[in-house]
Amino acid sequence: MIQAALQKNPRNVSALVHRAHLYGEMGDRERELRDYDAALGASEPASPQRRHVHWSRGWSRYDQGDIEGALSDWAEAERLHGGRPAWVTYTRALAYWTVGDHATALHWYALAASGYPEWGTDEGMEQRIRYWSKPQQARMRALYAHWKAG
């Protein structure tokens, strides 16, 4: 289905992002990054599509251990959003926790929980991370436990 969409339109941003994600899950980083670059090239500046590419590539970079790159992509996605997207606080919390900056991570997590009450409960937090990868879940659970004990 993705291949058919790309055969019909090689600049289909959504299909390129989806395929990039699949390549990432398979461990093919070269093709993954190639498709993210192609999606950026095919998207209009300041468009919701460009914002989505940065958000998605940020998660890919996070999973690769490039936390600085992830934060950069997420900052660009936030800028393109023009507001304060719900994901800003918890993604920053997760990124800072991952690099060991626990004070900054706890600050961002507190902002997530104050703005979005589900982040402040065991059930709500588990619901929010249910589709995350196992390493992402483990890090967020550790962060949540420290915040809750706080």
Rank of each mutant, 00 (worst) to 15 (best):
D63I: 05
G69W: 05
A105S: 14
N9E: 15
R139G: 07
H102G: 15
W119A: 00
P85Q: 04
A145Y: 14
R84K: 12
L40K: 15
P45L: 06
W108Y: 15
A75P: 00
H146Q: 14
G82S: 08
A93D: 09
A42N: 07
P85H: 05
G69D: 00
H107S: 08
L80T: 09
Y90E: 06
S43P: 08
H54Q: 05
D37A: 13
I129K: 07
M125D: 04
W132I: 04
W108Q: 05
W74E: 01
A4W: 06
W108E: 07
R128F: 01
Y90A: 02
R141P: 00
S47N: 11
W87E: 01
R57T: 04
W119C: 00
L33A: 08
T104S: 07
A38Y: 04
E44Y: 03
G83L: 05
P117A: 12
R11C: 08
A42V: 10
H18L: 14
Q136A: 15
P10F: 09
A93I: 05
V99M: 13
E118T: 13
T121A: 02
G58S: 04
G124H: 07
N12K: 04
A15E: 11
D101H: 14
A145N: 15
Y131V: 14
H21V: 12
E25A: 07
Q127M: 05
S47T: 07
G27H: 06
N12R: 02
A149T: 11
H81N: 15
A5E: 11
L71S: 00
I67Q: 04
T89N: 09
E30D: 13
A70V: 03
R141S: 05
S56M: 14
Q137R: 15
R19I: 02
Q49H: 03
E68G: 01
M26F: 02
A75R: 10
A5D: 08
S72L: 03
R50Y: 01
P45A: 09
